[in-house]
Simulated scan of single mutants.
Amino acid sequence: MNRPIRLVTAALTVSAALLLAACGSGGGEASDKIEGADSNGGGKASASAPTSTKPSGAKRPKIKLPGSFRADFVGWHHSDPKKQAILDDGKERLRAEYAAIIEGNPQAKPVAFYTSQQALTSSRAYIQGYVGNNHTLVGEARVFNPQVSLSDAGGGVLFYCVDESKGYTEDRGTKKRTGTPDDVNPVLQYRTTLKETKQGVWSTVSLETERGGCDK
Protein backbone atom coordinates (compact mmCIF):
# COMPACT_ATOMS: atom_id res chain seq x y z
CA MET A 1 0.00 0.00 0.00
CA ASN A 2 1.15 3.54 -0.60
CA ARG A 3 -0.07 4.34 2.90
CA PRO A 4 0.72 1.21 4.97
CA ILE A 5 -1.61 0.04 7.74
CA ARG A 6 0.42 1.47 10.61
CA LEU A 7 0.57 4.39 13.02
CA VAL A 8 2.84 7.37 12.72
CA THR A 9 5.95 6.44 14.72
CA ALA A 10 6.04 7.76 18.29
CA ALA A 11 8.97 7.58 20.69
CA LEU A 12 8.63 4.96 23.42
CA THR A 13 8.99 6.10 27.00
CA VAL A 14 10.70 2.97 28.31
CA SER A 15 14.27 1.85 27.91
CA ALA A 16 15.43 -0.25 24.99
CA ALA A 17 16.39 -2.97 27.43
CA LEU A 18 12.83 -3.22 28.75
CA LEU A 19 11.40 -3.32 25.24
CA LEU A 20 13.74 -6.08 24.18
CA ALA A 21 12.90 -8.01 27.33
CA ALA A 22 9.31 -8.18 26.11
CA CYS A 23 10.37 -10.39 23.23
CA GLY A 24 11.09 -13.18 25.67
CA SER A 25 7.61 -13.11 27.19
CA GLY A 26 4.66 -15.25 26.29
CA GLY A 27 1.73 -14.64 24.00
CA GLY A 28 -1.21 -16.57 22.68
CA GLU A 29 -4.20 -16.07 20.48
CA ALA A 30 -7.48 -14.22 20.29
CA SER A 31 -9.15 -12.38 17.46
CA ASP A 32 -11.94 -11.52 15.16
CA LYS A 33 -10.94 -14.96 13.86
CA ILE A 34 -9.48 -17.33 16.46
CA GLU A 35 -6.96 -20.01 15.55
CA GLY A 36 -4.71 -22.03 17.99
CA ALA A 37 -2.98 -20.58 21.04
CA ASP A 38 0.52 -20.12 22.47
CA SER A 39 0.25 -19.30 26.14
CA ASN A 40 3.90 -18.82 27.07
CA GLY A 41 5.80 -18.12 23.88
CA GLY A 42 6.45 -21.75 22.99
CA GLY A 43 4.27 -24.69 22.06
CA LYS A 44 0.49 -24.75 22.03
CA ALA A 45 -1.63 -23.82 24.99
CA SER A 46 -3.87 -26.43 26.52
CA ALA A 47 -7.60 -26.31 25.91
CA SER A 48 -8.03 -25.21 29.52
CA ALA A 49 -5.99 -22.00 29.12
CA PRO A 50 -7.84 -19.28 31.04
CA THR A 51 -9.84 -16.65 29.26
CA SER A 52 -9.55 -13.03 30.31
CA THR A 53 -11.94 -11.43 32.75
CA LYS A 54 -12.75 -7.81 31.90
CA PRO A 55 -12.55 -5.39 34.85
CA SER A 56 -15.97 -4.16 35.95
CA GLY A 57 -14.83 -0.55 36.44
CA ALA A 58 -15.11 0.49 32.79
CA LYS A 59 -17.73 -0.17 30.15
CA ARG A 60 -15.75 -1.03 27.04
CA PRO A 61 -17.03 0.25 23.71
CA LYS A 62 -18.21 -2.20 21.09
CA ILE A 63 -16.00 -2.08 18.01
CA LYS A 64 -17.32 -3.54 14.79
CA LEU A 65 -15.33 -3.89 11.59
CA PRO A 66 -17.20 -4.20 8.28
CA GLY A 67 -17.07 -7.27 6.08
CA SER A 68 -14.77 -5.42 3.69
CA PHE A 69 -11.91 -5.46 6.20
CA ARG A 70 -10.84 -8.17 8.62
CA ALA A 71 -8.23 -8.20 11.37
CA ASP A 72 -7.10 -11.70 12.34
CA PHE A 73 -5.36 -11.87 15.72
CA VAL A 74 -3.28 -15.03 15.98
CA GLY A 75 -1.69 -16.06 19.26
CA TRP A 76 -3.38 -13.58 21.60
CA HIS A 77 -3.89 -15.72 24.73
CA HIS A 78 -1.70 -15.81 27.84
CA SER A 79 -1.88 -17.91 30.99
CA ASP A 80 -1.25 -14.87 33.21
CA PRO A 81 -4.54 -12.93 33.73
CA LYS A 82 -2.83 -9.53 33.99
CA LYS A 83 -0.85 -10.07 30.81
CA GLN A 84 -4.02 -11.32 29.14
CA ALA A 85 -5.72 -8.05 30.08
CA ILE A 86 -2.90 -6.13 28.39
CA LEU A 87 -3.27 -8.28 25.29
CA ASP A 88 -7.03 -7.74 25.22
CA ASP A 89 -6.85 -3.96 25.47
CA GLY A 90 -3.89 -3.75 23.11
CA LYS A 91 -5.89 -5.70 20.54
CA GLU A 92 -8.92 -3.48 20.95
CA ARG A 93 -6.79 -0.37 20.50
CA LEU A 94 -5.68 -1.54 17.07
CA ARG A 95 -9.21 -2.59 16.12
CA ALA A 96 -10.49 0.82 17.24
CA GLU A 97 -8.01 2.55 14.96
CA TYR A 98 -8.92 0.40 11.98
CA ALA A 99 -12.62 1.10 12.61
CA ALA A 100 -11.99 4.86 12.89
CA ILE A 101 -10.14 4.90 9.55
CA ILE A 102 -12.97 3.03 7.87
CA GLU A 103 -15.58 5.32 9.49
CA GLY A 104 -13.51 8.38 8.56
CA ASN A 105 -13.60 9.68 12.13
CA PRO A 106 -10.31 10.68 13.82
CA GLN A 107 -12.25 11.61 16.97
CA ALA A 108 -13.87 8.19 17.35
CA LYS A 109 -14.46 7.51 21.05
CA PRO A 110 -13.05 3.95 21.08
CA VAL A 111 -9.66 5.30 19.92
CA ALA A 112 -9.50 7.67 22.89
CA PHE A 113 -10.79 4.92 25.20
CA TYR A 114 -7.80 2.66 24.49
CA THR A 115 -5.16 5.27 23.62
CA SER A 116 -3.79 8.31 25.45
CA GLN A 117 -0.89 10.75 25.68
CA GLN A 118 1.51 10.76 22.75
CA ALA A 119 0.03 7.65 21.19
CA LEU A 120 -3.41 9.29 20.97
CA THR A 121 -2.02 12.36 19.20
CA SER A 122 -0.19 10.17 16.70
CA SER A 123 -3.18 7.90 16.15
CA ARG A 124 -5.55 10.76 15.42
CA ALA A 125 -3.06 12.33 13.01
CA TYR A 126 -2.67 9.02 11.23
CA ILE A 127 -6.42 8.51 10.90
CA GLN A 128 -6.79 12.08 9.64
CA GLY A 129 -4.28 11.27 6.91
CA TYR A 130 -6.70 8.71 5.53
CA VAL A 131 -9.68 11.02 5.93
CA GLY A 132 -7.92 13.92 4.22
CA ASN A 133 -7.06 11.75 1.23
CA ASN A 134 -10.56 10.25 1.06
CA HIS A 135 -9.11 6.78 1.68
CA THR A 136 -10.32 3.75 3.61
CA LEU A 137 -9.02 0.23 4.33
CA VAL A 138 -10.10 -3.01 2.69
CA GLY A 139 -8.80 -6.57 2.75
CA GLU A 140 -7.14 -8.22 5.70
CA ALA A 141 -4.47 -7.58 8.32
CA ARG A 142 -2.91 -10.52 10.14
CA VAL A 143 -1.78 -9.58 13.65
CA PHE A 144 0.49 -12.18 15.21
CA ASN A 145 3.37 -13.01 17.56
CA PRO A 146 2.32 -10.84 20.54
CA GLN A 147 5.00 -10.51 23.21
CA VAL A 148 3.89 -9.01 26.52
CA SER A 149 5.73 -8.13 29.73
CA LEU A 150 5.36 -5.99 32.86
CA SER A 151 7.79 -3.30 33.97
CA ASP A 152 9.00 -2.96 37.56
CA ALA A 153 6.72 0.07 37.88
CA GLY A 154 3.70 -1.99 36.84
CA GLY A 155 3.37 -0.72 33.29
CA GLY A 156 2.86 -2.94 30.27
CA VAL A 157 5.06 -3.53 27.23
CA LEU A 158 3.48 -5.12 24.18
CA PHE A 159 5.18 -6.04 20.91
CA TYR A 160 3.31 -7.57 18.00
CA CYS A 161 3.55 -8.04 14.24
CA VAL A 162 1.16 -6.96 11.49
CA ASP A 163 1.23 -8.52 8.02
CA GLU A 164 -0.22 -6.02 5.54
CA SER A 165 0.27 -8.13 2.41
CA LYS A 166 -3.49 -8.70 2.03
CA GLY A 167 -4.54 -5.20 3.13
CA TYR A 168 -5.24 -2.33 0.74
CA THR A 169 -5.87 1.40 0.76
CA GLU A 170 -9.02 2.16 -1.24
CA ASP A 171 -10.08 5.53 -2.63
CA ARG A 172 -13.64 6.11 -1.44
CA GLY A 173 -14.57 7.83 -4.72
CA THR A 174 -12.81 5.90 -7.47
CA LYS A 175 -12.61 2.59 -5.53
CA LYS A 176 -9.03 2.24 -6.75
CA ARG A 177 -7.02 -0.01 -4.45
CA THR A 178 -3.34 0.31 -3.64
CA GLY A 179 -1.33 -2.42 -1.92
CA THR A 180 2.17 -2.61 -0.47
CA PRO A 181 4.71 -2.32 -3.32
CA ASP A 182 6.49 -5.55 -4.22
CA ASP A 183 9.85 -4.17 -3.10
CA VAL A 184 8.58 -3.20 0.38
CA ASN A 185 8.37 -5.64 3.30
CA PRO A 186 4.65 -5.95 4.15
CA VAL A 187 5.27 -6.92 7.79
CA LEU A 188 5.56 -4.34 10.58
CA GLN A 189 6.53 -4.75 14.20
CA TYR A 190 4.57 -2.61 16.66
CA ARG A 191 6.27 -1.73 19.96
CA THR A 192 3.90 -0.24 22.50
CA THR A 193 3.81 0.72 26.16
CA LEU A 194 0.62 0.78 28.23
CA LYS A 195 -0.55 2.11 31.58
CA GLU A 196 -3.50 0.84 33.57
CA THR A 197 -6.15 3.44 34.34
CA LYS A 198 -8.13 3.65 37.58
CA GLN A 199 -10.98 1.96 35.72
CA GLY A 200 -8.79 -1.04 34.89
CA VAL A 201 -8.22 -0.23 31.20
CA TRP A 202 -4.75 -0.76 29.74
CA SER A 203 -4.30 2.42 27.72
CA THR A 204 -1.55 2.58 25.08
CA VAL A 205 0.54 5.67 25.86
CA SER A 206 3.39 5.32 23.36
CA LEU A 207 4.28 3.27 20.32
CA GLU A 208 6.68 2.91 17.44
CA THR A 209 6.74 0.68 14.38
CA GLU A 210 9.54 -0.94 12.42
CA ARG A 211 8.94 -2.26 8.94
CA GLY A 212 10.66 -5.62 8.53
CA GLY A 213 11.03 -6.05 12.28
CA CYS A 214 9.17 -9.39 12.17
CA ASP A 215 9.28 -12.58 10.15
CA LYS A 216 6.21 -13.04 7.97
Rank of each mutant, 00 (worst) to 15 (best):
K54H: 08
R172L: 08
S68E: 10
A37F: 13
V157N: 05
Y130T: 00
G57H: 13
P181D: 05
G90V: 06
G28Y: 12
T51N: 13
S203D: 05
G200H: 10
I101S: 07
T204K: 05
G139D: 03
Q128P: 03
S15E: 12
S123A: 15
D163L: 02
P55G: 10
P181A: 08
M1C: 00
T178G: 03
S52I: 15
G212H: 07
L19S: 10
T180N: 04
S48T: 12
S116K: 15
D163C: 00
G57W: 08
V205W: 09
T51M: 11
G42T: 13
K33W: 10
L12S: 11
A100S: 15
K91T: 13
H135S: 05
K175P: 01
T209Q: 09
K62T: 14
Y114N: 07
G212L: 05
V131I: 02
L7R: 08
V14E: 12
A22M: 05
T192H: 01
K198Q: 12
K109Y: 09
F73R: 00
A96S: 11
S56F: 11
N105Y: 08
D171V: 01
A141L: 04
Q189V: 04
L207E: 10
V201N: 03
T180K: 03
P81A: 14
D72Q: 14
K109C: 06
S151N: 14
S31P: 02
T51R: 15
Y114K: 04
T197V: 11
Q117T: 11
T204V: 14
D80M: 08
D182P: 01
L188H: 04
N145F: 02
P66K: 09
S206P: 01
K109H: 06
G42M: 14
D171C: 00
K54M: 08
V74D: 12
S56V: 12
T51V: 12
E140V: 07
E35W: 14
